[in-house]
């Protein structure tokens, strides 16, 4: 029995009485999982996160975090969550250490605990040697890590990550993924994250909700979503010149078999497990497989299937675009 750590019911946000940013969404996040919100910019991901972290008030519907209502018990929610925003919010004029202490003060964590924990967190995000340097001098990756440290100062039960790797280079992104995995493993934290990188959602998330135009289109684990496309594609060629379509079709999990130019194109769920079974079935009947290839569908295809378009930046509001550029500019500045 898993707990529902985050629960949203008909959660809706309408800006200026006309712009529907989030449209009656329902989802729940279980304890200890990494739940990803995947969608293009402007899909409503950040708006959703901002409602969950009590920064925005929902126009309709309700949401709760650890059983606390985000509107009526906002202060209770704030105490048990950690937030790593999309922007670099650390103060550039303060040092990394000062920034963490500032966060601790906002949570009202006693000074002695705060100091000890700040050093631990700097160690965790590998910023110990830069602790007394002004954030101004930090690179994008370092800033992101500092944000992560700030978000962890109150030992949150639930961590919210808004586009945790936006604007980072490939290595830094991989390193950030590693931190996130470690947090989940070591602290058993429930993590809610948004991303518009498919590979990120695939690599990190236990479950994903694809959101587009303020609506959740589909929810499931990355593999469930991929399986929902009808599974993997296995292509095999046999040595013998015979029609083995029926033999292949009789194998478990095989959904569709087509003979194309002397090879067989098979659609099957759980391709990696099914392919050996097909080989085995053919071998038992005396056929020899000479070639085999397996293609797994990517989230990209899932995304295409459900939204009808490839994931890429859609038309953003001017302000969002500007914010995006500020963030990117700062990320590049290191």
């Amino acid at each position: 029995m898993t707990d529902e750590v985050i629960k949203a019911e008909n959660l809706t946000k309408i800006f200026n009485k006309s712009l529907v940013a989030v449209d009656h969404i329902n989802f729940s996040v279980r304890e200890g999982e990494i739940f990803g919100f995947l969608g293009p910019n402007g899909a409503g991901k950040t708006t959703t996160i901002n409602m969950l972290i009590t920064v925005l008030k929902p126009t309709e519907g309700r949401a709760s975090v650890l059983g606390f209502d985000v509107v009526k018990q906002a202060n209770e929610v704030r105490k048990v969550i950690g937030v790593v925003p999309q922007e670099y919010t650390a103060d550039e004029d303060l040092t990394g250490y000062e920034n963490i202490i500032l966060c601790a003060d906002l949570y009202g964590i006693p000074r002695d605990i705060a100091k000890k924990r700040a050093l631990e967190l700097l160690e965790l995000v590998e910023l110990t040697e830069f602790r007394d340097k002004r954030v101004e001098t930090y690179s994008g990756g370092m800033r992101r890590r500092l944000e992560l440290a700030c978000g962890l100062i109150n030992r949150p039960k639930v961590l919210f990550l808004d586009e945790p790797t936006l604007g980072l280079d490939v290595q830094t992104r991989a390193a950030t993924w590693e931190y996130i995995r470690r947090l989940k493993k070591e602290y058993g934290m429930t993590i809610f994250m948004t991303t518009h990188y498919l590979e990120e959602a695939d690599a990190l998330c236990d479950r994903i909700a694809i959101i587009d135009h303020g609506k959740i289109i589909v929810t499931g684990s990355p593999s469930e979503l991929k399986d929902s496309l009808g599974g993997d594609v296995i292509t095999i060629t046999i040595k013998e010149n015979a029609d083995v379509t029926d033999i292949i079709r009789s194998v478990e999990n095989v959904k569709e078999v087509r003979k194309e130019n002397g090879s067989y194109r098979i659609k099957a769920a759980k391709g990696e497990a099914t392919a050996p079974l097909i080989i085995e079935a053919l071998r038992r009947k005396g056929f020899t497989v000479t070639r085999l290839s397996l293609t797994e569908p990517t989230l990209n295809e899932v995304y295409l299937e459900y939204t009808g378009r490839a994931i890429r930046d859609t038309e953003e509001s001017k302000e969002a675009f500007r914010m995006h550029r500020i963030t990117l500019r700062r990320a590049r500045a290191g």
Binding site: L66, V80, L106, I109, N154, P156
Partner: peptide
């Protein structure tokens, strides 16, 4: 929502004593 995990959450929250003066 089990009472156990809410209790744990409350434990974590107890440590936070945000005061007007401090903030």
């Amino acid at each position: 929502m089990s009472t156990a995990s809410q209790a744990r959450a409350t434990n974590a929250a107890n440590e936070c004593r945000p005061s007007l003066a401090r903030g």
